[in-house]
Amino acid sequence: MSNGKSILVDTSLCTACRGCQVACKQWNNLPGTKTKQIGTYQNPQDFSSDTWKVVRFADGKKEDGKPYWYFFTDMCRHCVEPPCMYSIQNFVKDAVVRDEATGAVVYNEKTKTVPFKEVLCPYNIPRQNPKTKVLAKCTMCFDRIKNDMIPGCVKSCPTGAMVFGDREKILEMANKRVADLKKTYPKAMAINPDEVRVIFIVTDDPKKYWKFAAGG
């Protein structure tokens, strides 16, 4: 097996335009859900069976008293050794497929018989459709990749914050980018690059972006 594919998400380049959030819904035929303004730009508030990508907004004050506003375009990390896959396979052997060529972790309808609370995910990604009980999350746009197209979210990104490619190349890019960013942001890091295929780069403590950014 090759090392498969990866996505680099450089949050230092992300402007939270939410093109990726919308592109995800468009490609995957997911409906816009009914939301309310509750005092944040973030909406929908969280993942659901109809929402596989959420741009999370976190604001606060820096040490000098000036504001910060961090953006985290949350999605399934497509773990190299996916805890969800192993936990689901304890119940239904073929409800999850890890694609040989890409490493994409893809659920199917058979997940509906899996007890949802037994599904392990350090990043709190999978959600259950309340009616059908089928589990849902990002597919890495597996169907696009098979047709020589890059994932919808990556395609929509205007600033190049998201890049898709062969895992070795993405890891190399991540290392180089972190080294560059460290000159300005000493806390810059790639989050769990050896464990996940969707590798986030942050310039501050991951917890300031989102409590499950680096796994919970």
Binding site: R18, V22, G32, K34, T35, K36, Q37, G39
Partner: peptide
């Protein structure tokens, strides 16, 4: 009129 956009910014604030 676009549900993905009103989902992201639903109401005046």
């Amino acid at each position: 009129w676009q549900s993905w956009l009103t989902e992201a910014q639903p109401q005046v604030y």
